[in-house]
């Protein structure tokens, strides 16, 4: 595996009984890339991402994430990545600051590093006045920002975002993408799943998954050209029209 690859997988497969959620997918993600993972509900995006993050054991295939083997070095991967799940999963009964402290301590940051990082973060997110607020009491848009900040506080090599903008209004979504760009410009590789097709345009490369398989993989402009259409929305409709799985 070349050193310029953040993620590289081959024939990655996950079966639950007779159901194949992810079916032999193969792809690479270059370092520093914003890589969009598109697909309808149930296409297998989350399952694929969970395998890359060491939360789920692949049934078949192999690969590397941040230079570590996804089969044998799952715990080592966890030091090098950040993950923001689809479901908001910070501790609701801890304050904003307590959550940040907890996770950054687990990532092995020293007290002074934590102090420094959280000061910077509160400033950047304009959350100074919320630091002692219980997480359950802050508005949804802020929760998403906080979740992203927590997932990236230890400056991971790769950050995985699983539908980070679900249920968020367009303005907040736009702002959220600014944060994603910020992370990317800080040198992080961003791996993001979404089913908002306008967001796909923000990615360097996109990967459209249908029924657990790769249906298209290229830059947004190359895909539009290939299918002779004007938007990713139309690309998606062409690619996904034969999908069997729905919710």
């Amino acid at each position: 595996m070349g050193n310029d690859k953040a993620i590289s997988v081959k024939n990655l497969t996950k079966k639950f009984g007779s159901f194949t959620a992810v079916d032999h997918i193969t792809f690479d993600v270059a370092k520093g890339e914003i890589f969009g993972f598109l697909g309808a509900n149930g296409a297998g995006k989350t399952t694929a991402m969970r395998m890359l993050c060491g939360l789920s054991r692949p049934t078949e295939g192999d690969g590397h994430v941040a230079g570590c083997d996804i089969i044998t070095q799952a715990e080592a991967i966890k030091h090098r990545i950040g993950y923001m799940s689809q479901k908001f999963s910070l501790y609701a009964d801890l304050t904003v600051e307590e959550n940040i402290r907890l996770f950054s301590t687990i990532y092995g940051m020293s007290s002074s590093q934590i102090r420094e990082a959280s000061e910077r973060l509160f400033k950047e997110l304009e959350m100074e006045n919320m630091r002692n607020t219980f997480v359950k009491d802050i508005p949804v848009g802020w929760k998403q920002k906080l979740a992203l900040a927590t997932a990236t506080i230890h400056k991971p090599q790769i950050v995985f975002l699983d539908e980070p903008t679900g249920g968020v209004d367009p303005v907040t979504r736009r702002k959220f993408w600014e944060l994603i760009y910020k992370a990317s410009s800080d040198g992080m590789t961003v791996f993001v799943t979404t089913h908002y097709l306008d967001e796909a345009e923000y990615c360097n490369r996109i990967f459209i998954m249908v029924d657990g398989k790769i249906s298209a993989l290229d830059s947004p402009s190359a895909l539009k050209e290939k299918y002779h259409v004007a938007t990713i929305d139309e690309v998606f409709r062409i690619v996904a029209q034969n999908a069997q799985r729905t919710d």
Partner: peptide
């Protein structure tokens, strides 16, 4: 049930 365990499982704890 609240999903917080997943946030823990994805850390090196």
């Amino acid at each position: 049930e609240s999903g917080t365990i997943e946030a823990m499982n994805v850390t090196p704890v």
